[in-house]
Every structure is written in structure tokens, then in C-alpha cells.
Simulated assay, not measured.
Amino acid sequence: MDFSTLFVGALVVMAFILLFSVVKIVPQGREMTVERFGKYTRTLSPGISLLTPFVERIGRRMNMMEQVLDVPQQEVITKDNAMVKVDAIVFIQVMDAARAAYRVENLPYAITQLCSTNLRTVVGSMDLDEVLFQRDNINSRLLTVIDAATEPWGVKVNRIEIKDLSPPADITNAMARQMKAERERRAVITEAEGEKQAAIARAEGAKQSAILQAEGRKEAAFRDAEAREREAQAEAKATSMVSEAIARGDVNAINYFVAQKYVEAFAELARNPTQKTVIVPAEMSGLVGTIAGLGELVGLAKEQQQGRTDVRAAAPPRATPPAPPRPRGGSVPRS
């Protein structure tokens, strides 16, 4: 191998080195800063770019995609002197590659430390109950403070989330007992409300039942009064008919009327609960004789009303039906 071949080979190698140092390909989601003699001049966007050989070089390669930084766990004393362990995560995105590259050294570490200090500040200004139940408030306050602090660095803080909050063991036990007591209180209240609603429902049912019973008694009384009225009307009509029959001289109507009253009186006597025995009258034929006598009186009244002037002297007297044999009086034991 002679000198000319070595020289050509060296030229080829230098050409490739020069080519790779001049032509730069920037991938998507990345940006590169260009320095001329150590001074920042421009920023290369994604794509292919050419540099001035031996004059310009690549300074910093910046990631323009959204990144997630983990804030390490730390112990924080709250406003009411309770010790809690807190950690978080922060989502950032570089908006200006030049400022992020040249205004702060070690950007992820700087943002992590900034989040840690502000986390202690925010949590330390709140009570333990507020810290446990107001995570959204903590996140929003941290986001406002850290985003304002990182704006000169060309970084946008999109979100900050509290990942874990760990109170001490004794506080955790006290919270568990408090939660149990609260659950029991709610259960007692719910049970009392149920009993109250049941009592109200029973009272409403009793009220409706009493109203319906009163309505029933009212309707029954009305029906009874109507029945008694109709019975009285029927009795009055029957009496009127009997009176008219008597006026006309109808002996059968008189017999029926008197016999009915006699039977009703005797039935009432038999239904008397204080009577051990029932006395049967010995003169059973007295009823028939009484009916016959009443018939004679009605006949005479009828003749007088008609104004007959002639006297029936020769008229034979009406034969009285033979009286049935008189049963012997005695006591009949009630069944």
C-alpha cells in the first residue's frame, strides 16, 4: 500500500466526518440548540439542517414532549402539629428550548426541588383535616406557584397531583374509630327515621280506619232510621186500614188486630229473660168471646151511622160460636 492510497483513504474518512458534523437530523419531539464559538445562535426544529463546518456545533438536545417528574416522599408538619408523609408527581413540558437549556442547570432536579419546597409550604399552612380532604385545593395552589416560578425557564407545568398522604398510625386509628362512630350514628338516625315513618303510617291507617268505621256507623244509623220510618209508616197504614175496616163493620179485621196484639204481648212475656216459667191463661176462650163482643159493638155503630130508624125487634140474635173447651191452667217450663 503506497502513500497515495493512504492519502485518499484519509480524505474519504475526513469527508464522512465533515458530512456528519455539518448535516444534522432532528427527530420529532426534539429540538437542538446551535452554538457558534460557544455562543447560542439558533434552535434547530425537527427535520434536516446544515451547520457551518468548524464554526457551529450542537449545544443542547432538548426533549419537547411532556415529561413526568416524581417528587420524592417527605415528612411535613401541618398547621396543627401533625406529621404527615407526602409525595407527588408533576407534569412539565419545555416550551422554549433555549431558555430551558441556558437559564437553569439540571432542569428536572430544579423543578423537583421547587415542588418539594412549595409542597412543604402549602401543606404546612393547612390543618390535617384540610390536607386529607382538600387535595384538589393543594394541587391547584401548587400548580399556580410552580408554574409561575418555571415560566422564566421556558417550562410549562401542566399538572401537579398529590400521589400519597400518610398520616401517623395513631391518627389513622383515631380516624378509623371516628368513622365507625359516625357510621353507627347514621345507622341509629336511619333506624329512628324508619320507626318514625312506620308510626306515622300506623297512625294514618288507624285514622282512616276510624273514619271508615264512623262512616259505616253513620250509614247504618241512617239505614236503621229509614227502616224504622218505613216500619212506622207501614204500621200507621195497617192501623188506618184496620180502623177503616172497623168503621165498615168488618169483624174479621177487629179479630185480626186484637189477636195480633195479644200474640205480641204473650211473645214478649215469653221472651223475658227473668222468667223461669210462662203462665198460660186458663180462659183461652176469653179471647174469642172478646172478639165476638167487639164485633157486635161495631155492628151496632154501623147501623147507627147509616141512620136506620127502624129497630130490628124481630131480628134473631147472632149466634155466638161455641167456646172451645177451656184448657186447664198451668205453668210451662221454658226451654
Rank of each mutant, 00 (worst) to 15 (best):
V94S: 07
G329W: 06
G295E: 03
S240F: 10
F16R: 07
P72W: 02
Q28R: 13
E66A: 15
V145T: 14
T320H: 02
R30M: 08
G59D: 15
R334M: 14
R177I: 10
T121P: 00
F133R: 06
E215S: 09
R228S: 12
L269C: 07
E229G: 10
Q93C: 05
K24F: 05
P108F: 09
P324V: 07
N106Q: 11
E66F: 02
L51P: 03
S21T: 11
A282K: 06
V84C: 03
A169P: 01
P46K: 12
A97C: 11
W153V: 08
D80M: 07
G29L: 07
K276S: 11
I189K: 09
N118H: 08
V34N: 09
V278C: 03
V131R: 00
Y262H: 08
F54D: 00
A253R: 03
I138R: 00
L69N: 05
A181I: 11
P27W: 08
A206P: 00
I162E: 04
N139T: 06
V13Y: 07
E264Y: 03
A214T: 09
K276T: 05
L297S: 08
I48F: 04
M62C: 10
A245C: 14
F257W: 10
P168I: 01
R228D: 13
A148C: 00
L132Y: 02
R120E: 10
R248T: 04
E182D: 11
I279G: 08
A214S: 07
P46D: 06
Y262E: 11
V155F: 05
E244S: 12
D96R: 06
L143A: 10
T274P: 00
K156T: 08
S335E: 04
P273K: 09
L107G: 06
G299K: 14
C115Q: 11
V258L: 14
I279M: 13
G47V: 00
A15T: 08
V34S: 10
S4Q: 04
